[in-house]
Nucleic acid binder design. Structure first.
Ligand SMILES: NC(=O)c1ccc[n+]([C@@H]2O[C@H](COP(=O)([O-])OP(=O)(O)OC[C@H]3O[C@@H](n4cnc5c(N)ncnc54)[C@H](O)[C@@H]3O)[C@@H](O)[C@H]2O)c1
Ligand SMILES: NC(=O)c1ccc[n+]([C@@H]2O[C@H](COP(=O)([O-])OP(=O)(O)OC[C@H]3O[C@@H](n4cnc5c(N)ncnc54)[C@H](O)[C@@H]3O)[C@@H](O)[C@H]2O)c1
Lengths: 237, 237
DNA sequence: TCGATTTTGTTCTCACGTTCACAAGCTCTT
DNA sequence: AAGAGCTTGTGAACGTGAGAACAAAATCGA
């Protein structure tokens, strides 16, 4: 309901949500969706925290950045909270996404149905290989990268996904930015340089495995450390 | 100050590498490999930091956890530092990996050649769908999940990758753990519960997109916040 | 109506991570 | 041999995040 209440209330003024909290909101959103589908109407911070795999104090603090959407002694209305988080993240509207590099990974992404239900619609597939142009994936045909500008503008893409080899990634990023894309998800093992105002997030599977390997190696070395071995759970960073 | 770190002189302090540093070591490793291939013998913290996309002070502090491998006034020997980081992470040896769930994503992962060169060898593909058993991917055949125990033991897997739908993920994780896997990389949108001593890292592409969407939405809202807009670069979390 | 009970929202403290700034230490030139 | 010029390694300041603890607010039963 009242979307103006935030200001009057002394809320963190819509701007000040910590990055760590932003990264957890989608997790809460998913947990709420699952709980809602199971028929639950109201949820306590303890229940929701368990479902999301976090500490309940942390959950409450995270939610408090959005506003006071709970009821003391009762908990949170599942559907209402779900809506508020979705609105805050911006997944009530649909975001148009272009994928560049339709190889192994690009194809997997384009075939994935889970994005649509979460507010993202893949509206263009682009590749540098001319011999692949026209190939259909679902109801989208692969276009040549020279069409990128036109497609981004015509279809209103603000998010671009890079799934090319690493040595092409910077050039692709430059073209995406030139075309007007202001958010990039990069799967290529490369450090991207982009102008201010453009957000880049990277997903690097080799790095994830290497981090696991580091801890795995630690478990193997018999002594040498590890006095009071703690939780050992490694989740996100 | 810290009375344990002393240990002797500049010992790597074996146990105490901060998690944030561990997550960056693979990035340095990749940058060093690239610099080495381009013929560079020696590199300064400033150069390497630029190549890795981090602050040079942070780089030096990170490296200092491994030991004193640089030379003041000169920099770091590229090959020597590369070796030291690889040894610290544990990617000198090969790690055997099993992938569970050979759908869109599982296939992309199994076809990907970049893992082998970074210390990981995919040694088993497992799926729950009996009709897929025997299907070849590269030189590996898909096995049924009931073979998981045997395969993990026979082929010495310590790392498991989950690429099944979300509702199967917990059951798969349980089976992996029961088979002896102690590190899990989870692509399914689900919160996993595992025993102490088992590491879980999750890669959630929907969440990455949602984080981008959040910031994208912020850029759109004209006023309401953003007085002194800062770097705006979002890299990892 | 009042007190018991529940659960939120927030405060406080501690731990962790980042960045600055600079002394220590190395090389090279004179 | 000594000083100039770099670059590392680290102490210290600062900022962000996590978690414990508790007061404030709501419901419920008597
Ligand atoms: N496949 C995986 O499981 C996996 C795992 C980890 C990392 N990655 C990374 O993801 C990226 C993609 O991996 P992949 O396995 O899909 O690679 P791939 O080689 O199968 O596909 C790359 C695609 O990009 C296209 N391409 C190349 N240069 C281009 C350019 N300049 N502009 C546009 N398109 C171009 C190619 O034509 C090809 O279709 C790589 O950087 C890889 O390192 C992939
Ligand atoms: N494909 C993508 O680009 C993408 C993107 C984001 C997230 N994900 C997530 O990654 C996971 C895999 O995605 P996908 O597109 O490859 O799905 P998919 O449906 O193509 O493949 C899933 C595979 O898992 C197998 N499977 C199902 N239940 C199993 C069980 N109990 N034991 C063993 N195997 C089982 C199925 O037989 C199938 O082969 C999903 O959780 C999905 O949400 C995928």
């Amino acid at each position: 309901m009242n979307q103006l209440r935030a200001q009057a209330n002394g809320r963190p003024a819509s701007s000040g949500i910590p990055e760590a909290t932003v990264a957890r909101l989608p997790v809460y959103l998913r947990a709420l969706t699952a709980l809602g589908e199971s028929g639950l109407r109201t949820v306590s911070s303890e229940q929701l925290a368990t479902a999301a795999g976090v500490n309940s104090a942390k959950l409450r603090k995270d939610l408090s950045y959005l506003g006071s959407y709970g009821t003391r002694g009762v908990g949170y209305d599942v559907e209402y909270l779900r809506y508020q988080i979705a609105r805050e993240i911006g997944v009530n509207q649909d975001w148009a996404v272009v994928i560049v590099g339709i190889g192994n990974l690009g194809q997997a992404l384009s075939n994935y149905g889970g994005f649509r239900s979460r507010g993202f619609r893949i509206v263009a597939l682009v590749d540098g290989d001319a011999s692949r142009v026209g190939e259909m994936h679902g109801d989208l045909a692969i276009a040549h990268i020279d069409e990128l500008d036109r497609l981004v503008v015509e279809r209103g893409c603000s998010i671009g996904v890079i799934a090319t080899p690493g040595d092409a990634a910077q050039a692709v990023a430059d073209r995406l930015v030139a075309a007007g894309v202001t958010s990039i998800l990069n799967f290529a093992p490369a450090v991207l340089t982009v102008p201010e105002g453009v957000d880049v997030r990277k997903v690097d599977l080799s790095i994830e495995l290497q981090i696991l390997a580091y801890h795995e190696q630690r478990k193997r070395t018999p002594g040498a450390d590890r006095e009071g071995l703690p939780s050992e759970q490694v989740v996100e960073s």
